[in-house]
Design a protein around this nucleic acid. Structure first.
Lengths: 225, 225
DNA sequence: GTCTATAATCAGATAGAC
DNA sequence: GTCTATCTGATTATAGAC
């Protein structure tokens, strides 16, 4: 006599999934707030409201926690990129992705890992979700970079990989924290500043009126009040 | 009867100073290599070839080691900036400083600290050498930024603080590690790429003859590679 | 001041009851 | 699967001989 109907198993699975989501949520914010090294598994457990041993039932190590968080943010990035309008110019797609990443960072949802050393790198490359997500995002970005360069909207003299790395680096740019800590600018203003320095650079743009035709795509977005 | 002539004291002081220099050298490279959290005082002592307790005779804590390293690099930056030709245009002075910082980073002499949390912040602001150096460098950079913006060589629409923070951020840009890890570019090429993306941005520069140029970014040619 | 040896602490990971 | 309680190892920091 079967005493465990399928619906009960489903409930159980749902509870499991819900708890894992809660863990991921806590990890995301702790990684964004304190970074990997300063985040402790005790804090994760306390924030979720479970015991530390329970965390280790879901994730085999602290590194896997971080890897899962990165895989999740990459999946979200992938979904965002796929949802962009098809007819949007490639450069605008790239700007949108950077804007999306900055928004995530400003709202404390962007986990930042120490790119430097440790077992973290090993755990990351061993995590299929992370590697697949990174590959998919990089390939999509690479296509848009190539298109934007072919169209002349992105500097064709820059190697595509350098552009790609620069975009990734801007997703964890400490300038955001500096400006936010200064407290003199709203999130929207910070967004404009970072986007401007990323795509337009620090130099003054060439004057738009050497002749009668204004150059498209180079109009500096005016700072909001 | 005085048995300790002054010259002996001087020798002793020299030996002390030499040992402290050796400690700072090791700390600089370890901070550049592994970062603050992953650097251990045991490693510092081992690399210098002394006992760990001896390190603590020179510096009261691990945080003070990092603060001293930062104070040192700021003093070096200050010296470099003061040695720049007076008649160099302000924008070129700024570019030179960024170039100098990138060189230091590429050669593993630039300590990188986790900007995030911990007692490190407290130790830094409590260190007069660090605070004075940071203030002096920031003031000098701020002057050059203002001049460059007044001259129209630096984008005047950007707040000076945003430019300043961006310059600091580029001094610890992870793009350097990415490009170096890729192994496809020499240090000189990496330098050019980073300087270009910092000051010129990712966008294509305005064409020198924009009057008859076709509008970029408007022809969607989705041809993936 | 430098050393060896050790204290004190903290965080990652696990054992075993339920 | 979750909990309490514990182990294990690493790391900062210090005590005391020389």
């Amino acid at each position: 006599m079967r005493t465990i109907p399928a619906v009960k198993v489903s409930f159980k699975a749902q509870a499991l999934q819900a708890r894992e989501d809660a863990i991921m949520h806590a990890v995301n914010h702790l990684l964004a707030d304190k970074g990997f090294d300063c985040m402790t598994v005790d804090e994760v457990a306390a924030q979720v409201g479970i015991a530390k041993a329970s965390v280790y039932k879901h994730f085999p190590s602290k590194e896997d926690l971080a890897a899962a968080a990165m895989a999740q943010i990459l999946r979200r990035a992938q979904a965002y990129m796929e949802a962009l309008p098809v007819n949007l110019p490639a450069l605008e797609k790239l700007r949108s992705v950077v804007r999306w990443a900055i928004e995530r960072k400003l709202s404390g949802e962007m986990p930042s890992l120490p790119g430097q050393n440790c077992r973290l790198r090993a755990a990351l490359v061993a995590n299929p979700g992370y590697m697949n997500g990174l590959l998919a995002v990089s390939e999509q970005l690479g296509q848009w970079i190539a298109i934007a360069q072919a169209q002349g909207s992105l500097n064709p003299q820059l190697p595509a990989t350098a552009v790609l790395f620069t975009l990734y680096a801007r997703a964890c740019d400490p300038v955001l924290e500096f400006l936010k800590a200064g407290g003199n600018y709203s999130d929207a203003e910070i967004m404009d500043l970072v986007l401007s320095t990323c795509f337009d650079g620090l130099n003054a743009r060439a004057e738009p009126a050497p002749c009668s035709a204004p150059a498209p795509g180079s109009s500096p977005s005016p700072s909001p009040g």
